[in-house]
């Protein structure tokens, strides 16, 4: 256990929300990112997958709940899969006041971006650094 004085000296981490049409996909990608991000203190990351009744789709309520839960005041990076997940987050950012201050849609591949974002946020990167690391995952070619 660290002393509280030491903890308060560490800058607040960026929070990460993983938005997928599927609750299982969002939860599994969060678990994967936590596992691959390695030891040490991890930045907060939460899944927001599917609809509240367990179906496939996008729920603005689940997204906003998760965003509030991971918000430590340093911004929240939202990674999304496709279609309504992208449009819902964009619509909330453009028109609404439901998301916390400093919430940002990050343009990134969902799985690779989630890992890059969590590693960067856990290392103390700010929101720009987290977003850049997640987006850079697009450049990693597999063939």
């Amino acid at each position: 256990m660290r002393g509280s004085a030491q903890v308060s000296a560490v800058p607040a981490p960026v929070g990460i929300v993983l938005v997928s049409h599927s609750a299982a996909v969002a939860a599994a990608v969060a678990e994967l990112a936590r596992g691959l991000a390695g030891g040490g203190d991890l930045a907060p990351v939460l899944p927001a997958g599917g609809t509240p009744d367990g179906g496939l789709g996008t729920s603005s309520e689940l997204i906003c709940e998760a965003a509030k839960a991971v918000d430590r005041g340093a911004g929240v990076a939202l990674l999304v899969d496709l279609g309504s997940a992208v449009l819902t987050v964009k619509a909330l950012l453009a028109e609404g006041d439901e998301l916390p201050e400093g919430a940002r849609l990050v343009d990134a591949p969902f799985v690779e971006g989630a890992v890059a974002a969590l590693v960067t946020a856990s290392a103390g990167g700010d929101l720009d650094a987290v977003a850049a690391a997640a987006s850079e995952a697009y450049a990693y070619r597999k063939e």
Partner: peptide
């Protein structure tokens, strides 16, 4: 519009929600 964004669950929610909200 706010209600549509929060209850529809598909792409038409944020689209119609944005239409009415704006």
């Amino acid at each position: 519009g706010r209600q549509l964004i929060s209850t529809v669950g598909g792409a038409s929610g944020p689209l119609y929600g944005t239409l009415l909200r704006r």
